[in-house]
Design a protein around this nucleic acid. Structure first.
Lengths: 144, 144
DNA sequence: CTTGATGCAAATGGTTTGCATGTTT
DNA sequence: AAACATGCAAACCATTTGCATCAAG
């Protein structure tokens, strides 16, 4: 499901296109997020992993980098419950279902929420913007 | 839309039924949440309001009370973005849409997400539990 | 060389906790 | 009286920020 053929260089190029600098820290963050596939990582997760290779890269830099990458549209944010915020590649992934038991993530196709959006619009005049919506529940394996 | 005929005494009775004590602080919190109707209040919002009548009730007590009431199923939690967590009556309100512009809340009928749940179940074996889901977007008035 | 990114340490802000005391049952 | 809730101050923890230094364009 995460077999997008995206490479680190694609992401770096994209970053440059948005007028952002491609620094060591940013490459490292992108590389780890790319390597993580569907797994969602917190800022601290990322810092720990990155520091195996680049001990000098500071947690605060990771936070600032994550902000920059989010702003650039390369990565997206997901929150759930009390857990710290997590990040993942934004490439055409729009909604998630998150297993509250094992933490597994299911990426939903971009249109999955369209019927709901239409209904909200029609019945309540409400323009839903569910780009970063995470739906809690229990995944197939955990359901037994 | 918040014209549920629920009274403070209903809530207090419910609380007692769950084996919890009906203290001044808990009554005060329930009263404010009830008075707030569809508005979502943070712990600090509630503390400020409560302290107008009961200056001695401490913010930490409000937090502990909110935990207790949530545990008892009387109130429910909603999160959005970076904002602090907010609380509202749990009585048969299951999903929300929240205007990111003005903060207005739209309560969706309990079945509003059923089609989505069915699809997730059928296509991914995923049992969604969207009890506390809050859908961001822009409400009718703010859309112009 | 100029602008923006980084490391570090310190600050922030929402939330939680330990403990002695007060209140509910 | 026993069990539990509360007030207060202090701790926590994820995240942010100020500032001097460093690296990318």
């Amino acid at each position: 499901m995460s077999a997008t053929g995206i490479t680190l260089e694609d992401l770096v190029a994209e970053l440059r296109d948005r007028g952002q600098r491609a620094t060591t820290a940013r490459r490292a963050v992108l590389a780890e997020i790319l390597a993580a596939g569907d797994t969602h990582l917190s800022a601290e997760d990322l810092a720990r992993r990155i520091q195996r290779q680049h001990p000098a890269i500071h947690l605060s830099t990771v936070y600032r980098t994550l902000d920059a990458l989010t702003e650039a549209g390369l990565i997206a944010v997901a929150r759930f419950r009390d857990q710290p915020v997590t990040y993942h590649l934004a490439v055409d992934v729009h909604h998630h279902a998150l297993c509250t038991n094992c933490g597994a993530t299911i990426n939903l196709p971009p249109g999955a929420l369209d019927p709901l959006r239409r209904r909200l619009r029609r019945d309540h005049g409400f323009r839903a913007d569910p780009r970063h919506l995470t739906i809690p529940g229990v995944c197939e394996r955990c359901a037994r």
